[in-house]
Design a protein around this nucleic acid. Structure first.
Length: 424
RNA sequence: GGAGAAAUGGCAGAGUGGUCGAAUGCACUAGUCUUGAAAACUAGCGAGGGUCACACCUCCGGGGGUUCGAAUCCCUCUUUCUCCGCCA
């Protein structure tokens, strides 16, 4: 959520930024926010004065009782009774206005970075980089869902039976390849300075709120009603929430974590080839990188994350490209996002395998994630995250691009992890 | 799951109805001393709101209540610890 002082001081910038997202009625919304804020401060000031008076009289009463002047004390008590009633009304009022203000603030997405192109949907995303050769496949090459069946490495039907659509069962070399990828990604991330962590897979409401899944987006998460907990949609949620209600020192930066977790998404999916096989799942594995940075360093850090992921894809020898998301496709909480896509030859389409975002202070504001700056003042930190990498589509890309008539080859860097070099 | 105890500033730890936003120690920051460092000494040192800046207000796990007045009393939730039970 945007911070109020920022909106107050940068009204025009905020409205302009929202326009890049095609956000409608931005100026009316911002105006109501500012109006609500004015109201809030006026009530607060009035309440503070009444409480101040009341505090003073209470102290008097204490003194009077001590010196035995009971009558005078009782007269003073009557005064505070009146003040009490007033302050009760005012604080109720304040509560209402604060809630109203918050509800308005929740509606405002993050302000896009200057690099974000205007645009309404994915067609307007900018391709900023591409690399790797698209392989020429043999004549009988097929999409991964057929390969999974042929080599019996991923069983979608068994998953249907056990749970439902979108919950595949990995078998034999498929399971081993999956485990190899997780280990390989974690090792790469560790080598790049990320601290490996294993967070809980269920989160409470406060955590969901901290990273912006709540309120409003609870439909995307599985909810365990009896305990009021949510299954994580990404490791970003628990790991970023490590730093909820935290006041850092400048010397704590940079903070770099990496976590492997299963991810759970309800997202009511459509049907058809776009969501077939591994393309979209309710449960999937992902290795995430999460950073907390000084605001002056966060874009440098983001650049580093992008380079890091490029390195992994180069080692895997997968053809990929990088997109800069346009305003219309940018996530609610993000200021700048780069998507990585791998080309799947057998499906003849690009598959999103990573998304690297800088949230600037948008999450930090909700998280109350701050640091003491050089002036000794508390300042909001920047949060960033990215997939490094999401498993199913990387797997899909590997299976499809590495298929030969003899079987599916394993990229060299993975062979030490799998212990085999061919799935046949 | 049952019984009991507890939750206070970055940490440890006093405080059980009236100058308590809170003693003390450690940590931290600045200074003195020193060739430098350490030690010692001196000073500062929680967070949020509000203000040009003060003033002022709020916060002692969360929420609610009693009272003129709550860190302190009551209710409730959460978490932690000890003992018992169960268990990978």
């Amino acid at each position: 959520m945007l911070s109020l002082p920022y909106i107050r001081d940068n009204k025009e910038l905020v409205i302009k930024g929202l326009a890049v997202r095609n956000f409608k009625n931005a100026d009316t919304l911002i105006e109501s926010v500012l109006e609500s804020d004015r109201k809030r401060r006026a009530i607060q000031a009035e309440l503070d004065n009444i409480l101040s008076d009341s505090n003073k009289i209470s102290k008097e009463i204490g003194k009077l009782f001590k010196s035995g002047e009971v009558q005078k004390a009782n007269i003073a008590k009557e005064k505070t009774g009146l003040l009490k009633e007033k302050s009760k009304n005012l604080s109720d009022n304040l509560g209402e206005v604060e809630q109203e203000l918050n509800e308005l603030l929740y509606q405002i997405p993050n302000i896009p970075h200057a690099l974000v192109p205007a645009g309404s949907n994915e067609e307007d995303n900018e391709i900023v980089f591409s690399e790797g050769d698209i392989p020429t496949l043999h004549e009988k090459a097929t999409p991964h869902w057929d390969l999974c069946k042929k080599y019996d490495i991923i069983d979608f039907e068994l998953g249907n039976k056990i749970t439902g659509a979108g919950f595949p069962v990995y078998k034999g070399k498929g399971a081993k390849l999956q485990r190899a990828l997780v280990a390989y990604f974690l090792d790469k991330n560790s080598a790049a300075g990320y601290t490996e962590v294993q967070p809980p897979l269920l989160i409470n409401e406060a955590s969901g709120f901290g990273t912006g899944q709540l309120p409003d987006k609870e439909g995307q998460m599985y909810h365990v009603g009896v305990d009021n907990l949510y299954l994580i949609p990404t490791a970003e949620v628990p790991v970023t929430n490590f730093y909820r209600d935290v006041l850092l020192k400048e010397s704590d930066f940079p903070i770099c974590n990496t976590a492997y977790t299963p991810c759970f998404r309800r997202e009511a999916g459509s049907y058809g080839s776009h969501v077939r096989g591994l393309n979209r799942l309710h449960q999937f594995d992902k290795v995430e990188i999460v950073r907390v940075e000084h605001p002056d360093k966060s874009y440098e850090a983001m650049e580093g994350m992008v380079e890091h992921i490029k390195g992994i894809l180069q080692e895997l020898k997968l053809p990929y490209r990088i997109l800069r998301l346009c305003g219309g496709d940018l996530g609610f909480t993000s200021a700048l996002t780069y998507d990585f896509e791998v080309f799947s030859t057998a499906q003849d389409r690009w598959l999103e395998i990573s998304s690297v975002s800088n949230f600037e202070t948008f999450q930090a504001n909700r998280l109350k994630l701050r640091f003491k700056n050089k002036d000794g003042k508390s300042q909001l930190a920047h949060t960033l995250n990215g997939s490094s990498l999401a498993l199913p589509r990387v797997l899909a890309g590997l299976l499809e691009n590495y298929q030969t008539e003899e079987g599916i080859k394993i990229p060299e860097v993975l062979q030490a992890y799998t212990g085999f070099d061919l799935i046949d």
